[in-house]
């Protein structure tokens, strides 16, 4: 029994110290505003994390939009309410699925790659030699990647939702024969700029912060061994996915829970 308590205690302390190290990493990388010279570095990272994630985002968005639309339409048609397909689709996408699914895909595609890249740079002493050259690796390597994540994920989310709506239109209007006027006007009646799109984007920004932070920290903190690296990459996907889902629940309560 005391062994169990002790191991829980040790784990909790481990967790606290990791949280402390992660916060320090964040602070030291992001303290001070980015300088103009860093823009090129950020652009290069947006290419790596954002642009390179486009294909998976677009493909997933189209099929998710199509499936949602199919389900909404066939179920709502039983009550003669198929005109509500558009609004249902748009609300679900803007409020929940857009930000969440994009963040999960982003964690799998870009987050794990970030962890592996930074971990490898550390293992091969690239970060260390940089420090010896009088260049701060946190500002040079870590900060641009965090900025790139913060910029890329909301943009990816917007692209995701747009493509998913398009996928929904293809299925509902072009294939199932829903009335396009009812589809769009129902959508525009029910969707509000700040309440739905705005809050969804805020969610996406919070997820971007979480996923890139976890990814960068896991890479920076990984033990410099093959085992440590593969562990860190897995951890990035697992931890950031759980964090995204848990945070989404909290944010939904705060944003839409009426109490």
């Amino acid at each position: 029994m005391s062994d169990l308590l002790r191991s829980i205690g040790v784990r909790f302390l481990d967790f606290l110290s990791a949280l402390g190290r992660a916060s320090l990493l964040w602070y030291r990388a992001m303290a001070g505003l980015p300088r103009w010279g860093d823009v090129a570095l950020v652009v290069k990272q947006i290419y790596n994390v954002g642009f390179m994630s486009l294909i998976i985002i677009v493909l997933s968005a189209f099929s998710i939009g199509a499936v949602l639309s199919l389900q909404f339409y066939t179920q709502l048609a039983r009550f003669g309410a198929q005109d509500a397909t558009g609004v249902g689709l748009a609300l679900v996408l803007l409020r929940e699925l857009g930000p969440v699914v994009t963040a999960l895909l982003f964690a799998g595609r870009a987050g794990s790659a970030l962890t592996a890249e930074i971990g490898l740079m550390k293992t091969t002493e690239q970060l260390s030699i940089m420090e010896m050259m009088g260049v701060d690796p946190l500002r040079r390597i870590i900060a641009p990647r965090i900025w790139a994540g913060l910029i890329s994920l909301p943009l990816l989310t917007a692209i995701f939702s747009m493509v998913a709506v398009y996928g929904g239109v293809v299925v509902a209007v072009n294939w199932l024969g829903a009335d396009p006027g009812g589809f769009w006007s129902g959508m525009q009646d029910g969707v509000e700029l700040w309440e739905d799109l705005g809050k969804g984007m805020v969610k996406s920004l919070v997820f971007a912060l979480l996923v890139t932070w976890v990814a960068v920290f896991q890479g920076y903190d990984a033990p410099p061994t093959a085992e440590g690296m593969s562990m860190a990459t897995t951890q990035t996907v697992v931890i950031s996915s759980v964090l995204v889902l848990a945070t989404d629940f909290l944010l939904t309560l705060v944003f839409y829970g009426d109490f």
């Binding site: 740079m121 690239q126 260390s128 010896m132 009088g134």
Partner: peptide
């Protein structure tokens, strides 16, 4: 001061530590 000192320091690690 430390950064200034490091700028005048050349270091060759055992692993070459080239930026990949």
């Amino acid at each position: 001061e430390l950064q200034a000192f490091r700028r005048n320091l050349g270091m060759l690690f055992q692993s070459s530590a080239l930026f990949t």
